[in-house]
Design a protein around this nucleic acid. Sequence first.
DNA 1: TCAACAGTTTAGAATTATTATAATGTAGTT
DNA 2: AACTACATTATAATAATTCTAAACTGTTGA
Lengths: 142, 142
Amino acid sequence: MPKNCNFIEKLREVGLRPTKQRVEMCEVLYNREKTFHFTINDLVKLLSEKMNQKISLATVYNTVHAFEKKGYLKEISIDSHKSYFDTNTSAHHHFFDEDTHELIDCDESDIDKINIRKKITGKKINSVEVLVRVASDNQTQK
Amino acid sequence: MPKNCNFIEKLREVGLRPTKQRVEMCEVLYNREKTFHFTINDLVKLLSEKMNQKISLATVYNTVHAFEKKGYLKEISIDSHKSYFDTNTSAHHHFFDEDTHELIDCDESDIDKINIRKKITGKKINSVEVLVRVASDNQTQK
DNA sequence: TCAACAGTTTAGAATTATTATAATGTAGTT
DNA sequence: AACTACATTATAATAATTCTAAACTGTTGA
Ligand SMILES: [Mn+2]
Ligand SMILES: [Mn+2]
Ligand SMILES: [Zn+2]
Ligand SMILES: [Zn+2]
């Protein structure tokens, strides 16, 4: 994660116009140390803080979906009531903290390879993902 | 799954009034061979077919959530755009057919026990669930 | 048996998240 | 600078879910 990636070039490469809104979104999404997990609301908040002018909600939705289509973002299902997105687009497992509603990525070494015995005829496996729900262990809490 | 379980008694046991709507819902949900996975829409459709009078949408939502709170139903997250519910309330894994949007339960023997190496300090694991997304293997199809 | 009460259902309004629309603005090209 | 295709915007529309308050019903105990 270099400090100042050339997002303009990156956007051009996949055929998206490097408009200021898209470059701004790239900065917010990818100019960080770790994977970023967010809801549209999180993102809107961060963008409004960062930018001088306001950004339209429709643009945030459109751009997130454009990024998703181009493989820059992945949608994650942990809560049927909210859409979460992930800047880590590879197949990977998650911990979900039920206290803070935060997602945490697992890497290869965190969970042993999943062995699936069941076959469904005529169907191929597209992905295998594990969700580990965690919560505070503290008795006094909650 | 007996043919005509005494749902009235079952409802009383957990402190729910055995109103005709709830008994009717029990029949639709639990009077079947296999686990039932459904969306609110699926359920409304089935109930309207089965019942002579119409049932209010609010009642379906209220009753599903009452059942959920009592541990009769479990909400499943596979698609952030829709709520799925499951009559199998135990911890279990799923296959999700991306062609038909159907959920299929796994049993113990289908997936080897998941070994989690990562520990998060101060947090305990509440559940570990695997989602296997499958789709048609047929080249000609889609 | 039946009135009284608490809990339940209901239709419709309200809220929330998301998508569609159509006018205006802008990046890239000449 | 001007042209054009694509993007952004405000706003309207849609869809899922929840709220509200009035009408209704299962239960209880007189
Ligand atoms: Mn989506
Ligand atoms: Mn829910
Ligand atoms: Zn992730
Ligand atoms: Zn299930």
